[in-house]
Amino acid sequence: METRGRRVGGKSTTREPIIQESEAAEEFEPEATRRRADVTESSRANRGWWDRNADEYQVEHGTFLGDDRFVWSPEGLDEVEAELLGPPEELKGKSVLEIGAGAAQCSRWLTAQGAHPVALDISHRQLQHALRIGGTFPLVCADAGALPFADGSFDLACSAYGALPFVADPVLVLTEVRRVLRPGGRFVFSVTHPIRWAFPDEPGPEGLSVSASYFDRTPYVEQDEEGHAVYVEHHRTIGDRVRDVVAAGFRLVDLVEPEWPSWNTSEWGGWSPLRGNLIPGTAVFVCERDLRD
């Protein structure tokens, strides 16, 4: 799962440190702003951000994610209970594309169910962590807007906060996913719940008051001293997301808004028990390609 939130936050874990060949911390403090960012700039910025920060991300969130769990969101929604891809016993033998795989925890869980996953991520460094943890499935470094697979290559696709929050053209990504799915295939993806864009990205009481227009689609951008984007996150309303799914040729079969469970006492950026018990933090879209296609 690759969700950063619009600011780095959350409590660090005691997970063992990983490969130390890259520096996760940036030498400058980027400027946060709201401005336009096209497909190319968004892709370049986010590839660089995840390559630079993958080590820190895995240290901070690796314990929560585990090595072989399928977690859809900071709320802790687990595919074991959710079965959004279908009953676990029906996953055996299925080919599955995981988009924005990070360290490929979801692909490891899928392998344990007898599925045949492929883990794809734009960040080479994230995939190095997937390689470090291990697995018998392919790892592919590629942009979700240009999937390097033939038409109809997969039975299922999934993305836990991967790619879609960070791309300027979500319909392009959704169309690519539909292309590589076989007729009848299912794609499930989770993103930050759009309502959260109206609130400050803070886990405490200061994050409970509306501070911006929900309808302002201007991307959140962090940029360097020369004005080049180093991180980009794009906002879509719920209606936008539904229209994107339909425009790409999918049928939306479910929209899940996970409630915050009582067992989860952790904070992850702006996600927290305080906020999670009052407003949704995640939206999970369950989409299918029609058998007739």
Rank of each mutant, 00 (worst) to 15 (best):
Y220R: 13
T111R: 15
G249P: 01
A163M: 06
N277K: 11
V230R: 01
R35M: 04
A248S: 03
A32F: 07
R6G: 04
S266D: 15
A101R: 04
P88K: 00
V39F: 03
G48I: 02
Q223L: 07
E27I: 13
D201T: 07
E79R: 01
E259L: 04
G162M: 11
T136Y: 04
A168K: 08
V245K: 04
R47M: 15
D290Y: 05
E21I: 07
V167R: 10
A160W: 06
S266E: 14
A146L: 05
F149I: 01
G5I: 00
S262W: 07
P170H: 00
E26L: 12
D67K: 14
A146V: 05
S211H: 02
F166I: 11
Q128P: 03
F189Y: 06
K92S: 15
S12C: 03
G48F: 08
E288Q: 12
P17W: 07
I238E: 15
G62F: 13
V242F: 11
C158Y: 06
K94C: 03
V171F: 03
H234T: 09
A163Q: 01
R132Q: 12
T40E: 14
F166N: 14
W109E: 08
P273V: 02
D224Q: 00
Y57R: 05
S153W: 09
G152F: 03
E90I: 04
D244A: 04
F199Q: 00
L139V: 10
C141A: 09
D121N: 09
T40N: 11
P88L: 00
I195A: 04
W268Y: 13
R241A: 14
I99Y: 01
P74Y: 04
V8F: 11
P261F: 02
F285G: 10
F166L: 13
W268G: 03
L274Q: 08
A146Y: 05
S211E: 05
G93I: 12
E222M: 08
V177P: 06
P200K: 03
Y214V: 12
E259F: 01
N264L: 10
V191K: 01
Y214S: 12
L65V: 10
E21D: 15
V191Y: 01
Y57E: 00
M1R: 06
D201M: 09
W260H: 00
G134P: 10
S12V: 13
P30C: 02
S22C: 03
A146T: 11
G281E: 06
T237L: 02
V191A: 08
R69A: 02
A32Y: 10
S95C: 08
E21F: 13
D68P: 00
G162N: 09
I122M: 10
W268M: 13
G66C: 04
T218Y: 04
E226Y: 06
W72V: 10
N277R: 15
D151S: 10
V256Q: 14
G276S: 12
P30F: 00
V173Y: 10
L120R: 05
V256K: 08
L181H: 12
L208G: 12
L65N: 11
E60I: 04
H228T: 07
P280L: 01
R182K: 15
S95N: 14
W49Y: 13
F154A: 06
R7D: 08
F154S: 01
A130Q: 07
A198Q: 11
D244T: 02
W260P: 00
T13C: 11
G48E: 15
A112P: 03
R196D: 14
A160V: 00
A212C: 05
P200A: 06
A229K: 09
S22L: 15
G207A: 11
V173I: 01
V118G: 14
P205W: 14
